[in-house]
Simulated scan of single mutants.
Amino acid sequence: MTLATITRVGGPTTVVEFGGWRLLTDPTFDPPGRRYGFGWGTSSRKLTGPAIPVAGLGAVDVVLLTHDHHGDNLDDAGRALLADVGTVVTTTSGARRLGRGARGLRAWETTRLSHPGRPDIEITATPCRHGPPLSTVLVGEVIGFALRWEGQRNGAFWCTGDTVLHRGVLAVADRVRVGTVLLHLGGVRFPITGPIRYSMTARQALRLVDAVRPHVAIPVHYEGWQHFRESPESVERAFADRPEVRWLPLGHPTTVTV
Score class of each variant (00 low, 15 high):
A156M: 01
A240E: 06
A77T: 13
L208Q: 11
E223I: 11
R97E: 11
L24Q: 07
P191M: 04
G168P: 04
D162W: 15
C159L: 15
F157E: 10
I218W: 05
L170M: 13
S43P: 01
V212M: 03
Q226V: 05
I6N: 06
R8D: 14
G144T: 02
V62E: 13
P133M: 10
T87P: 07
P53K: 14
N154K: 14
G94M: 02
T126M: 00
V258I: 15
E141F: 11
G33Q: 12
G39D: 04
T28G: 10
L183V: 08
A205G: 10
S43I: 13
F29G: 02
T48D: 09
G56I: 00
T28Y: 12
P127T: 05
V89K: 03
I143S: 02
V188L: 06
P132G: 02
V54A: 13
V85Y: 10
L24S: 08
S199N: 06
V209P: 02
G179L: 05
L138R: 00
E141V: 02
I218V: 13
G251R: 02
H227Y: 03
T201Q: 04
H70T: 13
T111R: 03
P214M: 07
T254N: 02
F38V: 06
P50V: 15
Y36S: 07
V245W: 06
L24N: 05
G11S: 11
G10E: 01
V60E: 06
H221P: 05
L105R: 03
N73C: 14
T2H: 11
T7Y: 04
S135T: 00
A171M: 14
R97W: 12
D76H: 14
P31N: 12
H215C: 08
T87H: 07
A173F: 14
L134E: 13
T91Q: 15
W40G: 02
D241A: 15
W108D: 05
